[in-house]
Amino acid sequence: CFDSRRRQSPRSCQHADLARLAHESRFSVNEVEALYELFKKLSCSIIDDGLIHKEELRLALFQAPYGENLFLDRVFDLFDEKKNGVIEFEEFIHALSVFHPYAPIEEKIDFAFRLYDLRQTGFIEPEEVREMVAAILKESDMILSDELLTMIIDKTFADADSDKDGKISKQEWMAYALKHPTLLKNMTLPYLKDVTTAFPSFIFNTEVED
C-alpha cells in the first residue's frame, strides 16, 4: 500500500465527495474520511486498484482470500449496488450506513430481508432458509438430520409466515423481525458510532474540520 496513491489519499477523495457521501449517509464528513482509511486498507489488500474485490472482503472477514461462503457472497452483492463485481467507496459508505447504530430499524430489516432472499424473488422461501441453515451446518462441521432440519424450518415458517402461503413476504419479515430483535444483531456495528477513534491514522491525514 505504500505507493504514491497512498500519499495522495485521502485527497483523492475530494471534499465535495466526502460532503455528498456524509449527506447521503449517517456519517459526518470526518467519519466518511475515517472510513476512507479503512476502505483504502481493504481495497489494496490483494489488488491495489482502489476497489474492494470479493477476495478482499473475504480476506477482511475470514483472514483467508479463498473459500466459498454463501453469506459473504450475499453481503458482497448487496454492497455492490452497480453489480459490476467490485465495491466502490460510495457503495461501501451507503451499505455501512445501514449498519450504523442510529440507522432506522426498518433499513436494517430491509437489508436482512434482501440478504435472506437468496434468489431475489421478493420472498424468503423455505428452500432458501434450508440452504442457509445447511451452509452454516457445513461451515461449522455440525450434523443435523433432515427430519430435524425440516422441523426447524416448519416451526420458523409457522411463526413468520402469517398468511400461510408458504413464503415470507417483506411485510411478514418486518413484523417478525420487530418481534424478534435479536435476529438483527449483526445489522448494527457499534464501531461505526465512533469511527474516528477506531482509525487513529485518520487524525494525521484529515484536512477537514466538521
Binding site: L38, K41, L42, L57, A60, L61, F62, Q63, N69, L70, F71, L72, D73, R74, V75, F99, A112, L115, Y116, V129, M132, V133, A135, I136, E139, S140, I152, I153, K155, T156, D159, A160, Y176, H180, T182, L183, L184, K185, N186, L189, Y191, A198, F199
Partner: peptide, 25 residues
C-alpha cells in the same frame, strides 16, 4: 435453543458478521 432458523443463521454465520472487518485492522 435453535428452533428459530433465522436466529440460528444470524448467530452462527461468520459471513454475516462484518465486525471482523474492523477488528482486524
Amino acid at each position: 435453543k435453535f428452533f428459530n432458523a433465522f436466529e440460528f443463521i444470524s448467530s452462527m454465520s461468520s459471513g454475516f458478521d462484518l465486525s471482523s472487518m474492523f477488528e482486524n485492522k
